[in-house]
Design a protein around this nucleic acid. Structure first.
Length: 265
DNA sequence: TTCCAGGCGTATC
DNA sequence: GATACGCATGGA
């Protein structure tokens, strides 16, 4: 990793990383663009302002200790994964090659499991501005994103301030299943993908798409391939016989590039 | 006003 | 197992 301390900040040189591509792409809902090339957001109970200094590969993590950078943010931004190598691998496929060129700064954020699961429950049949609104009200209420234990006494009525509509009852079911031990977060990181999806789909309101988003973004299962309406268009247009071989094991990363590509055209 | 949004549960065949 | 429909809310 190429970084140095700069006063209270960390300066990071990082290729294959763009703030808009990664933080404003619908994989996480707590990052706000505060200026050109600058975002403010949070992971667990840590807040961060991150800016791009030169419009390409130089980033400033504001007011961040070296310890927090190494122990928290380097992992969250998945800095140990070589996305350049992944894009070279994908470029053997014409469509993927164009998709990687279109949004080459995408990285998969390694988010908190409960935040990803609950956020994508909220996301169903919803639009991104409203998803952010609901999650913003939740975080304002709890002074940060609550863990499942924090929410143990919530009911559909007590969550009415979120204005999350029919999704409130799904959140309540997710809270109870996580707290009663029937959803084992540690196991979901390692058991076969189909088993992991089936476990998550025991939660009311969690179907194949929400389960795959939770697994990809919250459990770092890069083989999970969420199929929303846009990705279904991708598949019928370019891959009627399935994804190309070069995506094997990294279907979730391919999904991110393809998702943004199809939405742009 | 009507339509739609990174789906899912339910009913029906 | 496939298909049709309703669902809370709010912005376009």
């Amino acid at each position: 990793m190429d970084y140095k301390k700069d006063g209270k900040d960390i300066l990071l040189r990082q290729s294959d990383f763009a703030l808009d591509d990664t933080l404003d792409c619908g994989q996480a809902f707590r990052w706000e663009k505060i200026a050109d090339n600058a975002y403010h957001g949070a992971f667990l109970n840590r807040q961060l302002t991150i800016s791009c200094e030169n419009g390409s590969d130089l980033f400033r993590l504001h007011d961040t200790s070296e310890q927090d950078f190494l122990e928290i943010w380097a992992d969250y931004f998945d800095l140990s994964t070589d996305y350049g190598e992944i894009k070279r691998r994908f470029s053997s496929d014409d469509t993927l090659s164009k998709a990687c060129e279109f949004a080459g700064g995408i990285r998969i954020l390694k988010q908190d499991s409960w935040e990803a699961l609950s956020s994508f429950i909220i996301s169903q049949n919803n639009n991104i501005p409203r998803i952010k609104g609901i999650i913003g009200r939740l975080c304002q209420h709890y002074d940060g994103y609550p863990c499942a234990v924090d929410m143990k006494n919530e009911t559909v009525d007590s969550l009415s301030y979120l204005r999350s509509g029919f999704r409130a009852k799904y959140l309540v079911d997710a809270i109870s299943k996580v707290l009663d031990g029937s959803i084992d977060f540690e196991a979901l990181r390692t058991i076969p993908l189909d088993d992991a999806r089936n476990v998550l789909m025991t939660i009311k309101g969690v179907g194949p798409k929400v389960a795959d988003c939770a697994l990809l973004f919250g459990f770092y299962r890069l083989d999970a391939f969420p199929k929303d309406v846009w990705v279904k268009r991708v598949m019928s247009r370019w891959y009627p016989n399935g994804l190309p071989e070069c995506t094997k094991g990294l279907e979730g990363i391919a999904q991110q590039y393809l998702f943004h590509y199809i939405r742009s055209i």
